[in-house]
Amino acid sequence: MAYNKKKIYDETASLIVDLCVRGRLNSEEMHFLLNLLDMSVLQRDNSGLFAILKVWLKGENDEEIDAIVKATLLAIDFSNQKSLQTNTELIKGLIAEKYTT
């Protein structure tokens, strides 16, 4: 791994855990973000999850749907490709619903 990439990876991981030990993130949120980081830096994600997350972040706020999206994200088992794909599809559907309503 290149120096800069290592540095960003380590800084980000430390920041996520630091936020957790300071009580700003709960344990579930921390695990999700760390898994996401590992996936983006080490695993070269093919699931389309990142693309769909970008769409979600750019969209308008919708408290109810956002809460469901978040709960779905936290339920992803990153070690299980099927869980990753199913939940990504689910979120895609939720976001589509958000724009049609």
Binding site: D10, A13, V17, V21, H31, L34, D38, L42
Partner: peptide, 10 residues
Amino acid sequence: TYVELLKEGH
């Protein structure tokens, strides 16, 4: 990885 270490330690 560093992430796995942090998760494990936490």
